[in-house]
Design a protein around this nucleic acid. Structure first.
Length: 271
DNA sequence: ATGCTAACCTGCGCGC
DNA sequence: TGCGCGCAGGTTAGCA
């Protein structure tokens, strides 16, 4: 589930329930995540008030005056706002309680993370993140310059978070389809016009996904919290062998850097 | 520095 | 029904 749009949707869903609220209790039910949840974390935030909930790449930051909780959802993580009386289930790792609700971290595969930092943007996990793909300084000219020395294929380059923060496997394939670019094209070979197009398409892809998820924000309270059920209509992702939505040519699946890439061999020929 | 591989986990869908 | 297999939205550590 969680690439940048899902993380942003989560942020918007949980922020109203946290901002300005005092943390009344913290429950670490299952500390095993990518790294163990720090045992001193409850003492750090109990009795403190949440200032804001922000996002950097795929990281969520639950901010306090003296630092922030850093949350990463990994492959299978989700955050839900529930009533304090709701029973915790299997793979519910952690609760952040306020007087009104409980923020619950659920993560079956345990690739997620929950950490505390007094200077979150300087934290080793965040310090080297690249440009925000929805920020106004992410332009075709910027991308063209950034890719100039990259021998790597464009698709894994888009997923390099030290270059661009937050683009995952689904949206990398989707954005390249929209831009008409072959995922295997060497990044340095992209023309200025191709980079312009790609930046536009990345923005459109991410914004549309956020907008599609935004319609289900109310579900963050009291329901399954499953940000996937609004079913974005992918052009190519997960559609190997199925007809391209634009030209009906069968979509191809290849593997790049041990990750599946999907593309239309007819629509994606430009560079 | 750069680039590949393995590793961390559970769950689901598929073919037999 | 049940079992084994392959696959999954991410990222780091370690090694060449």
């Amino acid at each position: 589930m969680p690439e940048l749009p899902e993380v942003e949707i989560t942020r918007r869903g949980i922020a109203p329930h946290l901002q300005g609220r005092e943390v009344t209790a913290v429950v670490i039910r299952q500390p095993r995540l990518r790294w163990p949840v720090p045992p001193q974390l409850p003492a750090q935030v109990t009795g403190r008030v949440v200032c804001d909930v922000t996002r950097r790449g795929k990281y969520l930051l639950i901010g306090f005056a003296h630092g922030a909780l850093i949350v990463h959802l990994g492959m299978s993580g989700s955050l839900r706002v529930e009533m304090p009386t709701a029973p915790a289930g299997k793979h519910d790792h952690f609760d952040l309680c306020t007087r009104e609700t409980v923020l619950r971290l659920h993560d079956p595969r345990r690739f997620g993370a929950l950490l505390w930092s007094e200077a979150p943007l300087q934290h080793p996990l965040l310090a080297h993140l690249g440009i925000e793909p929805l920020a106004s300084d992410f332009t075709g000219a910027w991308l063209h310059a950034a890719l100039r020395t990259r021998t790597q294929a464009i698709k894994p380059a888009l997923m390099d978070h030290t270059l661009i923060a937050g683009i995952g496997n689904i949206y990398a394939s989707e954005a390249l389809f929209r831009a008409g670019l072959r995922p295997t094209t060497a990044a340095r070979r992209l023309s200025g016009r191709a980079c312009d197009r790609l930046v536009t398409c990345i923005g459109e892809t991410l914004r549309e996904a956020i907008a599609a998820g935004g319609s289900s924000l109310r579900d963050f309270v009291g329901s399954d919290g499953h940000a996937g059920h609004f079913q974005q209509r992918h052009f190519v992702y997960g559609r190997a062998g199925e007809p391209c939505r634009m030209c009906a040519t069968p979509v191809r699946r290849i593997v790049q850097g041990q990750r599946a890439s999907f593309y239309c061999p007819h629509c994606q020929r430009a560079r």
